[in-house]
Design a protein around this nucleic acid. Structure first.
Length: 543
RNA sequence: GCCCCUGUAGCUCAGCAGGAUAGAGCAACGCUUUCCUAAAGCGUAGGUCAGGUGUUCGAAUCACCUCAGGGGUACCA
């Protein structure tokens, strides 16, 4: 209907010589204002110097619309043109859902195109925390949306197992190990204090009891890394996240990509030496101040490998690159994009999704978190407490740009009245009705159902809500915001529960009506199942 | 100081390519089950959309200013 109206009205506007690109169609909030509406008359009032009501008449005059789609239209003050869809259109759309099944709502926007989503990317210095969880679920769900939009998606995890932090990790493990052997050794300055390192030290002690203070710290570092990465991957798997590529920053050094970036920027005259460090003249490129790329110690800052990594992303030829970052990285990406730009590389296809922090509340108190200080709640603990479905839902029900308050007590306590169960119950409720219908011997032959019987108020409302699904997916894809989906699914569930309360689905006295209603529920269930699948949440048959 | 995010009902938050009377969930109060799962539905109450100025036929939405909270502004990532 949207496509149809857009096409017909645009053609009409062009015929009149009016700017068709100003045409906007939206769904009115109130049902009495129709199913679709346009404000074009008001938008053009100024240019045409005529009243909106007058303007509205003109394109609509003599415009005959397919009665199989549009029932009628109205022009209302102050100048809205409202369109009402026909019953035939609704029936045909339900048929479409039933026919396309789990493919309903997929688009070919990204067909033949590739996309990469980089997310999590936590260095293996400790378990994933509640803070990482948001990014994890955000990235995975967005990847699902892109897949639904036709893209071939690569989920990527970028990490660094070299550098200062990892060395500290190795030293910290070594200290714990020696501590277990009875030596009184203090943790290195700024070392990792987490208890998880004691567990790892114990494992190492069991496997290799003969290490001493003289053992190379490299052994401890590598043992810690392997152990922690195993743990991280297992946490990810528990909430259904599997990355396709783990990209090690170290490879950028080994293949000379780091040096290449330096030499290209050097050739452009954008580098200089000061105080023993190598600086990038970002101040000449619209950024406040210059940035250090190589420290006076000879080690690069994180910016340099980031630039090299993104240069590789560009070279790998993705049509769309999405980076999911926490708000603490907000200053890094302009540098990276600027570098790509001056190197003459494509960068417009790189989208950055910044998510704000998760504030963890426990007993009404803000929990300050730091991986190094070991004052954190792990993602694993959270999953243990509330389950993977609830974890995923809680993280994506809010927009990424809002500061998320994660109230642990609430999440734990809410197992009965949790919003996620509301959705799952809607799905289970339909399954339950199907089971009951079968018991009663009701013919569930939806192929031949007379869908025109679905003309009651709340049936129509439910159908309309169901038909919004592809628009919601598209909205998520366009804005790279996934929180619209859980919101929509809640509305769909509400429409379903309302329908259920008002009408009896299984009515042996009216088998034809029952059949039509069962067909509608089947369509609704298809959408609930698809939506939940995109969110990575299970769709139970019964609860 | 400068940059980014946020400020909407008691609480948590939608809405913000300007549109028709500002929404939901939770919390509060009241109601609904001889009938497909009440993990549900309905109703009542609750608002200076942080504040101000501007643009517009029309502003929660756009611009500017102020205030408040968070993050960044590192030769940490």
């Amino acid at each position: 209907m949207f496509e149809y109206l857009t096409k017909r009205l645009s053609a009409r506007l062009e015929l009149l010589g009016w700017p068709a690109e100003r045409l906007q169609l939206s769904r009115p909030k109130k049902a009495e204002n129709g199913d679709w509406a346009t404000n074009i008359a008001m938008a053009l009032a100024r240019d045409l110097k005529r009243s909106p009501m007058q303007i509205a008449e003109e394109p609509m005059d003599g415009l005959d619309l397919d009665p199989g789609i549009v029932e009628k239209f109205e022009i209302l003050n102050p100048g809205f043109i409202n369109f009402f869809q026909s019953a035939d259109y609704l029936s045909s759309q339900i048929r479409k859902i039933l026919k396309e099944k789990d493919d309903y709502g997929k688009s070919n926007f990204g067909s033949g195109k590739t996309a990469q989503v980089e997310f999590v990317s936590a260095n293996p210095t400790g378990p994933l925390t509640v803070g990482h969880g948001r990014q994890t679920v955000l990235g995975d769900t967005l990847a699902n949306i892109l897949t639904w939009s036709g893209y071939e998606v690569t989920r990527e995890y970028y990490f660094n197992n070299a550098g200062r932090q990892m060395r500290l990790l190795g030293e910290s493990l070594k200290a714990r190990y020696l501590e277990l052997k009875g030596e009184s050794i203090s943790l290195p300055d700024g070392g990792y204090e987490g208890a998880y390192l004691i567990d790892i030290a114990q494992d190492l002690l069991n496997e290799q009891p003969d290490l001493t203070a003289d053992t190379d710290v490299e052994l401890f570092k590598s043992y810690a890394e392997t152990s922690i990465f195993t743990n991280i991957k297992s946490s990810l798997e528990r909430i259904g996240v599997v990355h396709d590529v783990f990209y090690n920053e170290r490879s950028l050094y080994e293949t000379g990509k780091i040096d290449e970036v330096l030499s290209i920027l050097g050739e452009r005259g954008l580098l200089y030496e000061k105080d023993g460090a190598t600086w990038f003249k970002t101040s000449e490129l619209g950024i406040e101040q210059d940035r250090v790329l190589v420290k006076s110690t000879g080690e690069p800052t994180y910016r340099l490998p980031d630039i090299a990594y993104h240069r590789e992303k560009v070279a790998r030829g993705f049509d769309l690159v999405v980076d999911i970052f926490g708000a603490d990285h907000i200053d890094a990406y302009p540098d990276v994009l600027t570098a790509l730009k001056v190197m003459g590389l494509k960068y417009e296809h790189i989208e950055v999704v910044i998510h704000q922090f998760v504030t963890l509340l426990r007993s009404g108190e803000v929990v300050k978190m730091s991986t190094r200080k070991a004052n954190f709640v792990t993602l694993d603990e959270l999953i243990d407490e509330v389950g993977a479905d609830v974890v995923r839902y809680f993280y994506i029900m809010r927009s990424a740009s809002s500061h998320l308050n994660f109230d642990l007590d609430l999440a734990k306590r809410q197992t009965e009245e949790n919003p996620v169960f509301y959705l799952q119950y809607a799905h289970a409720r339909i399954s339950s009705i199907f089971r009951r219908a079968q018991e009663r011997g009701l013919d569930s032959d939806t192929e031949n159902a007379d869908l025109s019987l679905l003309n009651e108020e709340f049936a129509v409302a439910l159908i309309n809500k169901a038909l919004e699904f592809p628009e919601v997916i598209d909205h998520c894809r366009r804005s790279l915001e996934v929180h619209h989906l859980p919101g929509y699914l809640s509305e769909l569930a509400t429409a379903l529960h309302k329908f259920y309360t008002e009408y009896k689905v299984i009515d042996l006295e009216q088998p034809e009506l029952s059949k039509a209603r069962l067909a509608l529920l089947e369509a609704v269930q298809i959408i609930l199942r698809s939506g939940l699948r995109i969110l990575g949440i299970s769709a139970p048959e019964q609860m």
